[in-house]
Simulated scan of single mutants.
Amino acid sequence: MLAGIHHVAIICSDYQRSRAFYCDLLGLPIIAENYRTERDSWKLDLQLPDGSQLELFSFAEPPARPSQPEACGLRHLAFRVENLSDVIATLQSANVQVEPVRVDEFTNAKFTFFADPDGLPLELYELPALPR
């Protein structure tokens, strides 16, 4: 059966802008970066700390996302963080708008939303500290 998520694929409208956002701002290391001449498309594989990956694609004139965040299909992509305040400060220092922090009514975990350069809804979800 399923063992976990291997990757999430994202299509961007401006490859260099999105590459800078995910690599430079969010700090995801590059696994591989390839240009596919036959498709006139970049494919960038990025490593997440848990071993899963993000794939960033560029395509000529991709269609816009129908609506956000309630379009049918993928609602948002959530990243687990250890310190929500630190990540928010990093995003805000780069002029990324971050929604006010909320608390999950079922888990008591803090979370917030922001968007990538194409408006893809992204979530930061802080897990409570593990007991020692």
Rank of each mutant, 00 (worst) to 15 (best):
S13N: 02
V81D: 09
C72L: 15
P100T: 07
F59K: 06
E61K: 13
R65Y: 02
Y22F: 12
Y15R: 02
E105K: 04
R80T: 11
R36Y: 11
G4Q: 14
D116W: 08
V98L: 11
S67T: 04
W42K: 02
T107H: 07
L56P: 01
H7K: 09
L56G: 04
Y15N: 00
A9W: 13
F57A: 09
P29W: 09
S85Y: 07
H76C: 08
A78Y: 09
P128G: 12
A32Y: 05
D86E: 13
E99I: 01
K43N: 13
L74T: 11
L127G: 11
L77Q: 12
V87T: 14
L25Q: 03
P63R: 03
L28D: 01
A89W: 02
I5Y: 14
V103W: 02
R19I: 05
T90Y: 08
E105G: 14
N83Y: 07
L91T: 07
L122M: 07
H7L: 07
D104Y: 04
K110T: 12
D118M: 04
L2E: 12
P49D: 12
F114A: 11
L2D: 05
Q68T: 10
P121D: 10
L127V: 06
D86W: 14
L54I: 05
E38L: 10
V103R: 10
I10V: 02
R39D: 06
P62C: 05
V98C: 10
P69V: 05
A64Y: 08
Y22G: 00
L130N: 14
A115V: 09
E33M: 07
Q16C: 05
V81F: 07
F113Q: 12
Q53G: 00
C23W: 00
F114P: 13
H76A: 05
R75C: 03
H7Q: 05
S67L: 02
Q92R: 13
R102D: 06
L46D: 02
K110N: 08
P100N: 13
R17V: 15
P66K: 00
S41Y: 11
A60N: 13
F79E: 03
S52G: 05
L84P: 14
S13V: 02
P128I: 08
S52T: 09
P69C: 08
L46H: 00
A60G: 09
R36G: 07
L91W: 01
E82T: 10
C12G: 08
F111G: 04
Y22Q: 01
A129V: 12
S13A: 09
Q68W: 07
T107Y: 14
G119D: 10
L48P: 13
T107A: 14
Y35V: 00
S85E: 10
V101E: 12
E33L: 04
L120R: 12
E33R: 06
I11K: 11
Q68N: 04
G4I: 07
R75H: 11
P121S: 09
V101A: 15
E123D: 07
Y15K: 03
R65E: 00
A32F: 01
Y125C: 15
W42P: 00
P100M: 06
I88M: 02
I30C: 06
D116A: 10
F79V: 05
Q53I: 00
D86A: 15
C72A: 09
L54A: 01
L122P: 03
L44K: 05
D86K: 15
P69E: 06
R65S: 08
F59P: 03
A78H: 09
V98I: 01
C72E: 04
S93W: 03
A115S: 12
F113C: 14
K43L: 12
